[in-house]
């Protein structure tokens, strides 16, 4: 089990990431993919601040864990999670996001923003790229992992299953797909949307080991990440791992949760202040519930 102080730290970071997303969504002139950003907050925080072996001061270290954001429209979430870790300047992100000549755009660009492993944005592209990174690591007998965060919606793309097929067939045990299973695509309408169930079984059928987790419980996510088997290139039974994280689109803000209208959008000042207050209230509740408020942490 993850240490309560660590859980508290990650919960506080998650709340801070939500506040930053909301502030950007409030002042940026265009739309932010706020629904899908909110659904992966705890996943990104748990990966970049706990589970992955990365060092922002030595971001190209060959031994680092690799991270591919296949749901590239969640770029701003990744920028903020990485900036909180020390990769980027938060003020620069907040001041320049989406503007002419900014390195921080709607979809991440490796060329313009070193530290990002691969440019992404067109859906269904990230997992094949991650499979390539995993093959390279295996051939060089390196022991780092390759993490790939996918939206469940993009797993309608055939290319995802082509690469799932390859990873399963070749037993890429150094590959971890994390699926933000928020069950809502941009146009998911009640009763007439794609039904992806039996979702975990689909991954199992492609010879992946599946772990399901509450994608908003940082303690549970850390337990899964901490329990990943060590990379063993000689294990003939190695399997890629799919972490199916059950999440809520728009998580944390009542008027956004499960509301496809907030797939992308902007906030008025009033909405932003209402949402920021809710983040603080929910964090206080969470800390009280997990005992994080009684001084066990710092």
């Amino acid at each position: 089990m993850a240490d309560p102080a660590e859980i508290r730290r990650l919960d506080e970071l998650s709340a801070e990431m939500r506040r930053l997303l909301l502030r950007l969504c409030g002042h940026y002139s265009g739309a932010i993919h706020i629904g899908g950003d909110m659904s992966m907050v705890e996943l990104l925080i748990s990966l970049y601040h706990h589970g992955m072996n990365v060092d922002p001061d030595d971001f190209a270290n060959p031994e680092r864990d690799r991270f591919i954001l296949s749901k590239g429209h969640g770029a701003v979430g990744m920028y903020i999670a990485m900036a909180l870790r020390g990769y980027f300047d938060m003020d620069e992100i907040m001041a320049t996001y989406g503007q002419l000549d900014s390195a921080y755009g709607m979809h991440p660009c490796k060329i313009q923003l070193p530290g990002v492993e691969s440019s992404t944005g067109s859906l269904g592209h990230g997992l094949p790229i991650a499979v390539g990174l995993a093959f390279a690591a295996r051939q060089r007998r390196e022991s780092h992992r390759v993490f790939c965060l996918l939206g469940d919606g993009e797993t309608c793309e055939g290319s995802v299953w082509e690469s799932a097929n390859t990873a399963g067939s070749y037993g890429l045990g150094n590959l971890v797909a994390v699926i933000d299973r928020n069950k809502q695509m941009m146009s998911s309408l009640e009763g007439v949307a794609m039904n992806l169930e039996p979702y975990p079984d689909k991954w199992r059928a492609f010879r992946w080991r599946v772990v399901e987790v509450d994608g908003h419980d940082v303690g549970a996510i850390c337990d899964v990440l901490d329990a990943l088997p060590p990379v063993d290139h000689d294990d003939p039974n190695a399997q890629p791992i799919a972490i199916v994280a059950h999440t809520v689109k728009g998580k944390g803000i009542s008027f956004m949760e499960r509301n496809v209208g907030w797939h992308a959008g902007s906030l008025t000042d009033e909405q932003m202040h209402e949402a920021l207050a809710e983040v603080d209230a929910r964090l206080a509740e969470r800390l009280a519930a997990t005992g994080g408020g009684i001084g066990g942490g710092s």
């Binding site: 490796k110 492993e117 691969s118 269904g124 592209h125 997992l127 094949p128 790229i129 991650a130 499979v131 390539g132 990174l133 995993a134 093959f135 390279a136 690591a137 055939g158 290319s159 082509e162 690469s163 097929n165 390859t166």
Partner: peptide
Amino acid sequence: AEQNVVGIAAGLALEG
């Protein structure tokens, strides 16, 4: 699976 093979090739090239 041509889309897949090209994506994998890109991943390999990212690793040098």
